Simulated scan of single mutants.
Amino acid sequence: MSDWPQGYGLHVLQEVDSTLNEAARIAPTAQGPVWIMAHHQTVARGRRGRAWTNPKGNLAATLLLHPQGTPDQIALRSFVAALALFDACVAVTGRAAGLSLKWPNDVLLNGGKLAGILLESMGQGRGVSHLAIGIGVNLAEAPGVEMVEPQALRPVSLLSETGALVSPDDFLTELAAAYARYETQFVTYGFDPIRIAWLSSAARLGEVITARTATSETVGTFETVDAGGNLVLNTAKGRVSIPAADVFF
């Protein structure tokens, strides 16, 4: 079991509307990075305002940071969080088999969605004063397929796929320790080592995938993630760099 990382606070709630909302509330007075975990969320949410189902025994947590850098640089912490999630899963199960990372912000297990990441920034104008990294992990139970949008990957749980029963508290300890290691690497050496590590576990790298936005759809071979965190596809019309989209296999 990892020790809690030095310099990171911990705020545990039995119930809250959303750990992301709680992060926004405490951001003005928070003195340093702090993890917020709730055993129950009443208004959990995912990307693009979608509802996020959070059954009992799953992890619902948000890391509140006071980051330095431009908004684009700060947003690269989604990759930092993904690597930390990958390592935490390995730590609690003793295996990396079946785990992969789906651009831009999901962790997969045996081809199904195990965890999701959502970044929300706070600040004035173009500056970012606080960053909240929301993380949900299906530890004990996965939502039903009727809870996800058409063509989305099936939800899976750590318990159903590996037989490992892990409490949210124990998982968060591993996650916080892993995140602290990658955060130090990111701040010290920049994005490139993070990008290379992320690509080493990327789902469907070198395969044909579909990137879909509200207004367009791009089909191409997943070539890489560039220095800005953009998805790079080789398409029939040439090489395309995509900053934001939902990816479908």
Rank of each mutant, 00 (worst) to 15 (best):
A164I: 07
E207N: 08
H11A: 13
P143G: 07
T213S: 07
L63I: 00
A30K: 00
A75E: 10
I36S: 00
S201L: 09
A152I: 11
R48Q: 15
L10Q: 06
A176C: 03
E183T: 06
V80Q: 03
L65F: 00
G125V: 06
A236T: 12
V34W: 01
I196V: 13
L153Q: 08
Q73V: 10
L231A: 02
A152D: 09
A115N: 00
N138T: 06
Q124N: 14
V208K: 13
V16Q: 07
R204Q: 13
D169F: 12
C89D: 06
V156R: 00
F222I: 03
R48I: 13
D3N: 14
R48E: 15
G94I: 03
I26C: 01
S78P: 10
E217M: 15
A115H: 00
E217A: 13
G125I: 07
L175T: 05
N110S: 11
L205T: 04
T215F: 12
G57W: 01
S2P: 12
A202K: 01
L231G: 01
L59D: 02
D106G: 02
P150N: 05
Q68V: 09
G32C: 07
A177F: 05
M147H: 14
N54I: 15
P243I: 08
R239V: 11
A176S: 04
N54D: 13
Q41E: 05
I117H: 00
Q68G: 08
G57E: 02
G94F: 04
V145M: 15
V34K: 01
V225I: 09
T188A: 11
Y8N: 08
V247I: 08
Q68E: 12
P71T: 02
L20R: 07
S2A: 14
P33Y: 01
F249R: 15
G7H: 03
L159V: 08
F191D: 01
A214T: 13
I194K: 03
E161A: 10
D72G: 10
N138P: 04
E161Q: 12
T162Y: 00
L199Y: 04
H130T: 11
H11Y: 11
Q14L: 15
D87E: 10
A177E: 04
D3R: 13
Q6K: 15
W52N: 07
V240E: 10
D17G: 07
H39K: 12
A30Y: 01
Q6I: 14
A227R: 10
N138V: 05
P5W: 05
V34D: 04
L205Q: 06
G125T: 07
T42G: 06
L159K: 06
G206Q: 05
S121V: 10
D169M: 14
G190E: 02
G116K: 01
P150H: 07
R48F: 15
E161D: 11
S121T: 15
Q6M: 12
N21T: 09
A96I: 10
R45T: 02
P71R: 04
L20Y: 04
Q151H: 14
G49N: 06
Q68L: 11
V156Y: 00
M122V: 08
R45F: 02
G125K: 08
N230H: 14
R212F: 12
S2G: 08
P193V: 06
T173E: 09
R48S: 14
E15Q: 11
L65C: 05
Q68W: 09
